[in-house]
Amino acid sequence: MKSNQQGMDKDRFDKYLFIAVILGFISLKVSFLAHFFGREVFYWYSVYRSTFVIHFFYIQYALSFLLCGYLFFLGVKLLSNANTLDKRRVGYMIIIWGIVTFVFYLLINELERMEIKNPEIFHTLLSNNYL
């Protein structure tokens, strides 16, 4: 690996940046699709509270961990190979994107899971503006 001062060549840096942007772009869409499947499709087929749906959330956790983890990793890789201020800024932004998306994923998953497991408690909290 080249030194930090020299950084990787422009083409490789841009390639990693492109992969990161595509990954960040699809990550939230995947989250919303999963949300849609979790709520609508399973509900239509009357398996809303089945064990499979609960397990589906674990699959989502794993997926979010992989997607956002890789996004974070790419951000760190870009940052460690950045030799200008603007390149470093791009690296920081990718890292922030990975963290924010992961937190958002967890929040959506947890709210969904909570609603499915304890709908009464969830709706009481919601109506009292605790959530």
Binding site: D14, V21, G24, D86, M93, I96
Partner: peptide, 21 residues
């Protein structure tokens, strides 16, 4: 200049996060 590309991308990423959330 090469860095204009990265400047645009970093601004775009900030806007992208704002739009998404």
């Amino acid at each position: 200049e090469e860095d204009v590309f990265y400047k645009y991308v970093s601004i775009g990423l900030v806007l992208l996060i704002i739009v998404q959330y």
